[in-house]
């Protein structure tokens, strides 16, 4: 009898909690959809719309950038006005200084995403750093890991919001391959077994002159084995922006190869690159 009463009582308490959980707002949160985008096929309007989707979806920008005071409310404020005053701020020391407006916005926005601490909007810095360090994560680093094409799309979206001309390039065919998320189809295949296959799969040749592609977006890799040792090569692939060879832009080479590649593939690639002699871009 006691047992029944006690059990019944405990069940009622338990049900009360369960009920409470069921009357609160019910939201399911899915991982960002890996969009099947054909960047090459996008026109300007499509790119801007893609940027807007990224802002709310994969980029997770709205987590902070909304009207809660966690970060500047990019969509709520007069973006053009604000950006103008940021760049005019004497404390601003970035690369957008002195450029023509639309272009300055592009540079400023890119800087905000790839190097958030370059300029920190007053009052928003990390605690104790007196606005010298931004709490914003780099958009091209995990957990968000946006690709260059996605970052361009975001800039296009924000430039459009700011009411200036959109100056970022349309996603070109050559960046397309590199920019596409690892299409799940590829990832589900087994690991590549030859270096050529790896280069193919991760489209290194779209930017580098490899396997006779002649591409010039990234530095030529012929003879790279004599300049960089294995560890430096590994770093150059896994963390490309750590060291930038003269004459090239950071932020172009994807930073998420480490996430996409299997360990065995990376090793194959390193063997191949280390053995690549000057003038021997095609095996």
């Amino acid at each position: 009898m006691t047992f029944l009463r006690v059990t019944l009582f405990s069940l009622v308490v338990l049900l009360a909690y369960t009920l409470f959980a069921n009357i609160l707002p019910q939201v399911q949160s899915n991982p960002p959809a890996e969009e099947e985008i054909e960047p090459a096929s996008l026109d300007r309007a499509g790119q801007i719309a893609w940027g807007e989707r990224l802002f709310e979806g994969k980029g997770a920008c709205t987590l902070c950038h909304k009207n809660l005071g966690r970060a500047p409310d990019l969509l709520g404020m007069d973006l053009g006005e604000e950006l103008r005053s940021r760049i005019a701020d004497p404390a601003y020391r970035g690369a957008a200084e002195g450029l023509e407006e639309a272009e300055a916005f592009e540079v400023y926005l890119r800087e905000s995403m790839l190097d958030p601490s370059a300029y920190v909007v007053p009052g928003f810095g990390k605690k104790g750093t007196r606005d010298r360090e931004s709490p914003m994560p780099r958009a091209d680093a995990p957990p968000v890991s946006l690709t260059p094409a996605e970052i361009d799309a975001l800039i296009a979206f924000l430039q459009d919001r700011a009411g200036v001309e959109v100056t970022v390039p349309l996603p070109a065919a050559e960046t397309e391959v590199a920019a596409a998320e690892p299409v799940t189809g590829t990832a589900e295949e087994g690991p590549a077994t030859t270096a050529e296959e790896v280069i193919d799969r991760y489209a290194c040749a779209a930017c580098h002159d490899l396997l006779g592609s002649g591409a010039e977006v990234g530095p030529p890799l012929a003879g790279i084995g004599t300049r960089l040792d294995r560890e430096a090569l590994r770093r150059a692939i896994l963390d490309p922006d750590a060291e930038i060879p003269p004459g090239y832009e950071p932020g172009l080479m994807p930073t998420d190869f480490g996430e996409q590649m299997r360990a065995s593939e990376l090793e194959l690639l390193l063997d191949y690159l280390a053995g690549l002699e000057a003038g021997e871009a095609k095996p």
Binding site: L15, T18, A21, L24, Q26, V27, Q28, E259
Partner: peptide, 25 residues
């Protein structure tokens, strides 16, 4: 593993509070 290893399982979503509550119960 945050920022290092993605969860690509079909379960990689955050269920609603109600579902969570029911399961906890």
């Amino acid at each position: 593993v945050y920022t290092i290893m993605k969860d690509r399982s079909p379960d990689a979503y955050i269920p609603t509070i109600g579902e969570v509550g029911n399961y906890i119960t």
